[in-house]
Design a binder for these strands. Structure first.
Length: 816
DNA sequence: CGATCGAAGCTTTTT
DNA sequence: GCTTCGATCG
């Protein structure tokens, strides 16, 4: 729709446009008001390549949207001549809204403002045949992908145990991110997946084509391949997309980069916005190099740096600057605050993860009341940002017990849930009966007595006749290849599909006079054009799917039924099932629209682009954050990405930023003692306030401060440091230092060890009887640096840090 | 074919 | 520790 207009627009002589541009220039441009000089420069440099380096909170969305408004209002471009790409639907939506509000009118058109994927789907549907597909191809999600690969691995007689499909999926995804088609794989990749990777990749692509399906990576990859193979077509789009804007450029992968470069290379009217310091998606193929290289790719690029931060106070910003300064690979930029000095970043250590959660809960309640002369902060303005989602659990548990309302962002998405995917598979089968993957998914869900054997029969039947699985199933029943109970059930299933499809087609058909005497159509007519919502309900009921969950007495069954209801409700926004399926394959967000004021719990990744008056950053412990795995797998690069994550976390905070760590944490069920994160040491001391933990530790220093709040008011970092100075001179401390003087371990800083009880420090030998606050009495059975393996009498074998142990006979002296 | 038991695994996540 | 997957048994 509107696409032919776009072609006409592109064909119009340029002079007409520049004329109107001059005419418009005289008009007031309110969207420019209040922009700082840098932002303004980025907005007004319409021609040629522009690189906008926009730090956190520097108003880049504002600049980007103003630029679009400027393009439109000066008449430089029409809405359909602008290609504006984002990564998430949310960002796309926001951009659309903000452009509209800047222009003071709804933006009609802007058909090419969207995510990379949404735009590529649109393009690929028009040119599907150039990729060997039909334009109604289905888009597989990760689950389908893996199942498909599992089949291929099985067929290739590879031990799926040693070479799991997930891993292959990861490898192939990586290749697609780098725009490597099977025929372009470099020799270096030959060894992947036990030397079978390349061959399986080729098979996988063939299979996808047979299924008339693509995965997410294909959307970009196919378009790049098509553009490369068809210069004429590319040229058409180059003329069409006269102005290109890209958000979050630091997150682009090679395929996206190539796609953009192909489209932009003729006119070079490309404006990219990004922040190399916020590149946190390297693990899924993002290439920071793209942004670092932009000036080389597009010679003469105008580089604009947005460094004026409007979000955070001085202390918060300086803390973030201090941490990120430890990264080597940077374009270099540092944020200036225009705000107040504000409060320092608060740092606190805790005994364990539960105590950390408890403390955060109390702090949030205190903030709600308003402490330290600060205005009360509503739960809505508070976020807890964790490195990994499993960390959320401790907080959820705690918030549940104290009745603090919270919302979790991220986690399993609505459309990724089992029951939703099953239901969708039914819909898919009705809409496109040759969707074999959907068939496989639900043929025996609910149980129809169709096990492996029956399914193999269907597969064989379908393959030997060159038909879809649905058709194969029908044949299998008719020829008696499947008999007994299974056959009856299968017939019911296949007939059901046909009937629903008939109803769908009948329901869509206008009430024609010549409604033929086909029974199915007539049924539809009796119902007077069954709505797609009723149809969906009917499918779920008659297939027995709803009943399956109703009869399920596991605790999650009611929730699943609830979700199914929600799914049906979501259909209301669409004309028909097809439209819905198309939408869902790309839009996977799960915005809950509840109004209640809640604390937000989410991962650091999910927090990018957001801001909150108060932010808690728990779990700053080496191994957790920075994540051990990131460092093991990607070394220094991984570490730097983790550090950027820290930077993203700190810069989410507007007024209060609280970082915390715990000395003990359960990791995969095992208690582990933790070291404070190295990022803690990188925080510039002058912008940090060290809080006294509320628990059992450090009590000898805080006899005067019974509550954590009182403690934080009195205890400046300096004060604490002074109070602790003696600790580091004790013989026990020195011996501890020697024990842990392994390469790679840095000197612990004051903050890292603030929970250490001076009196308790001592060094033990194998077999010593010891006492631990949490686990009680036990015997030392292993020593690993500063970590002791102890067989506790009651709690079993644990690894703990030596400083939390006291000799068993001294235990009575330690006041707990 | 379905239920039950044991082993292995286990970031981050959008589309 | 908890979940998920596969193998094995009835």
């Amino acid at each position: 729709m509107g696409e032919s207009d776009a072609f006409e627009a592109a064909a119009r002589p340029a002079s007409a446009r520049s004329l109107s541009a001059q005419a418009m220039a005289a008009r007031p441009m309110p969207y420019l008001d209040g922009l700082n000089p840098e932002q303004r420069a980025a907005v007004e440099a319409l021609e040629g390549p522009v690189l906008m380096l926009a730090g956190a909170g520097t108003g880049k969305t504002r600049a980007l949207t103003a630029r679009i408004a400027h393009l439109l209002l000066t008449g430089t471009a029409r809405p359909n001549e602008i290609l504006a790409v984002t990564f998430t639907n949310k960002a796309a939506r926001e951009m659309k809204m903000r452009v509209a509000s800047l222009m003071g009118q709804p933006v009609e058109g802007m058909p090419w403002l969207g995510t990379f994927h949404a735009i590529c789907v649109k393009l690929l549907r028009r040119h599907a045949e150039l990729a060997g597909l039909k334009s109604n191809f289905t888009i597989l999600d990760t689950d389908d992908q893996v199942r498909l690969m599992k089949q291929l691995i099985l067929a290739a007689e590879i031990d799926e145990k040693r070479w799991p499909a997930r891993q292959l999926a990861g490898i192939i995804d990586g290749w697609k991110n780098r725009a490597l088609t099977p025929d372009k794989l470099p020799a270096a990749e030959a060894g992947a997946f036990n030397h079978r990777g390349p061959e399986l990749y080729a098979q996988y692509q063939t299979r996808l084509r047979e299924l008339n399906a693509v995965d997410f990576g294909d959307l970009l990859l196919h378009m790049v391949t098509i553009f490369q193979a068809h210069p004429d077509l590319l040229a058409q789009y180059q003329r069409w997309f006269r102005y290109i804007l890209v958000d979050e450029y630091q997150d682009t992968n090679v395929a996206q980069y190539l796609w953009l470069r192909l489209l932009a290379q003729e006119h070079s009217n490309i404006c990219v916005v990004g922040d190399d310091d916020q590149s946190i998606y390297g693990w899924r193929g993002a290439e920071v190099g793209n942004i670092l290289r932009f000036e080389k790719d597009f010679p003469g690029a105008k580089v604009v740096r947005l460094e004026q931060n409007y979000r955070s106070t001085v202390h918060i910003l300086e803390a973030a600057n201090g941490v990120i300064a430890h990264n080597r690979e940077r374009l270099g930029k540092s944020l200036r605050s225009v705000g107040e000095e504000g409060a320092r970043v608060r740092l606190i250590g805790h005994w364990d993860g539960e105590e950390e959660a408890r403390w955060v809960g109390e702090e949030i309640e205190a903030m709600g009341r308003g402490t330290r002369g600060m205005d009360p902060v509503s739960p809505d303005g508070i976020a807890i940002l964790v490195r990994a989602s499993h960390q959320m659990r401790a907080f959820e548990d705690r918030f549940l017990t104290i009745g603090l309302p919270y919302r979790v962002i991220g986690g399993p998405r609505f459309y990724e849930r089992l029951e939703i995917r099953d239901a969708m598979a039914y819909f898919r089968l009705v809409v496109s009966p040759d969707d074999d993957l959907a068939f496989e998914r639900v043929v025996n869900t609910p149980k129809r007595g169709l096990g492996d054997k029956a399914q193999q029969v269907i597969q064989r039947m379908a393959r030997s006749n060159g038909v879809s699985l649905v058709e194969g199933a029908r044949l299998a029943v008719e020829t008696g290849a499947i008999g007994g109970k299974g056959a009856r059930e299968l017939r019911g299933f296949v007939d059901g599909l046909a009937r629903w499809r008939g109803l769908m087609l009948g329901g869509l058909r206008a009430v024609g006079p010549e409604a033929d005497d086909d029974l199915l159509i007539e049924e539809g007519a009796v119902q007077d054009r069954l709505s797609h919502i009723e149809l969906a309900e009917m499918i779920l009921d008659e297939s027995g799917y709803t009943a399956m969950w109703q009869n399920d007495k596991t605790p999650e069954a009611p929730g699943r039924l609830e979700n199914l209801k929600e799914l049906v409700k979501a259909l209301e926004g669409f004309e028909n099932l097809q439209g819905f399926l198309e939408h869902v394959s790309l839009i996977m967000d799960n915005e809950s629209d509840d109004q209640e004021e809640k604390v937000t719990l989410m991962t650091l990744h999910a927090a990018k682009g957001l801001e909150f008056p108060a932010v808690f950053l728990p779990g700053w412990e080496d191994g957790l954050f920075p994540s051990q795995r990131a460092m093991d797998e990607s070394g220094i690069k991984g570490l730097e990405e983790e550090r950027r994550l820290a930077y993203v976390g700190i810069t989410r905070a507007e007024e209060v930023c609280t970082i915390s760590f715990a000395s003990n944490r359960r990791v995969y069920g095992q208690w582990q003692s933790q070291m404070a994160s190295r990022f803690v040491d990188e925080l510039p001391a002058e912008h940090v306030e060290v809080l006294t933990p509320s628990g059992l530790h450090g009590h000898q220093n805080m006899s005067s401060s019974a509550s954590p709040v009182a403690g934080m008011m009195q205890g400046s970092a300096l004060h604490e440091a002074a109070a602790r100075a003696d600790v580091y001179n004790s013989p026990g401390w020195r011996r501890l230092q020697q024990n842990q003087a392994r390469p790679g371990l840095r000197q612990p800083s004051e903050a890292r060890n603030m929970t250490i009880d001076a009196e308790a420090i001592s060094v033990f030998a194998l077999g010593d009887r010891v006492f631990h606050q949490k686990f009680g009495y036990g015997a030392v059975i292993g020593i690993e640096g500063d970590k002791m393996e102890v067989a506790f009498d009651k709690a079993g074998e644990k690894k703990v840090v030596a400083s939390y142990l006291v000799s068993a006979d001294a235990a009575d002296d330690v006041p707990f």
